[in-house]
Design a binder for these strands. Structure first.
Lengths: 157, 157
DNA sequence: TTAAAGTAGATGCGAACGTATATATCAGTG
DNA sequence: CACTGATATATACGTTCGCATCTACTTTAA
């Protein structure tokens, strides 16, 4: 039954995420930020320090209005700033400030050490690589799919 | 560079979780509940339909006061009820009602089909099993660890 | 046996969230 | 070029969240 192994894979992945995240929260890995705020700065850094707000939103599990307000707060704190898009008047470009990049880096380096401590204690390096490959393949494959069981229809056609 | 493969494994797992969860939210898999409410009913069902509140809390990413209030709401909706613990007067036993079990099952069956559609489109059955094993091993190994890099002892010393 | 420390859950309160909707801009069609 | 629909972001508003703290019960040990 492939429906069985599929949901077992998802449940195992999801529960692992919950358990590790609990550890990170418990250890206050993201202080002085909230984990969701760090997530914004991290993804912004990964996108080269500047991104359209909707692109950033695509990588996060929060709604568009929540992200808009979070950016208000991150901007007030001096970690990001908004710029107008030169090509599309509707878009807002979110830019990581120097201070924001410093904060992200400071938290990130500490956080990465904690990640390594947990992951290394559980998996061999080979297993870590296998997990990364499988999780990436899952993400990519799921992205290619439309919302539901999905007919032939193509997206990025 | 084991720190590298460790964080790559975590990031891949985390991002896969975000992407799939976005799909589930977008498709309203958990309606008429919120995803966190479904998560409570699902975990309660997995624990045999009754659990101490703190045990339930251990499996969720929400704080104790938030869970307490969520149980208020789930109780008002008729999905769970609180019972006194026979062995410890401080504890509250959360019990899944028949109606709660029916709702969890109804949502769960639909949700599992969606999971299978996404996971099957991305991974072979063998890969799904490998992913489940690796994610489980990661969770179990991380649980065995203390909070930080873990010196021999040391609390908040 | 009782005082101190520890643990489980509930509550006050300000902050953050999501849904619905408004505003502004862009894209396509007649 | 209007006009219709789509897209990107912002705002109003009620709900939910987390932090700090309180209450109640249990455990420890003097």
């Amino acid at each position: 039954m492939t429906i069985r192994s599929a949901s077992e894979a998802w449940e195992a992945l999801f529960r692992a995420q919950v358990t590790l995240m609990q550890k990170f929260e418990e250890a206050k890995d993201f202080a002085p930020l909230r984990s969701r705020e760090y997530d914004v700065l991290f993804n912004l850094a990964q996108l080269g320090g500047r991104a359209r707000q909707w692109e950033l939103n695509e990588r996060l599990l929060i709604t568009q209005p929540s992200l808009s307000r979070m950016i208000d707060r991150l901007q007030a704190a001096g970690y990001v700033r908004r710029e107008a898009s030169p090509s599309d008047g509707r878009e807002v470009i979110v830019v990581l400030t120097e201070e924001g990049a410093r904060m992200q880096g400071r938290i990130g380096r500490r956080h990465v050490r904690h990640i390594a401590a947990l992951v290394d204690s559980a998996l061999t390096e080979e297993e870590q690589q296998q997990l990364a490959v499988l999780a990436d393949k899952l993400r990519t494959g799921a992205l290619a799919r439309g919302t539901r069981t999905e007919e032939p229809r193509a997206e990025t056609a």
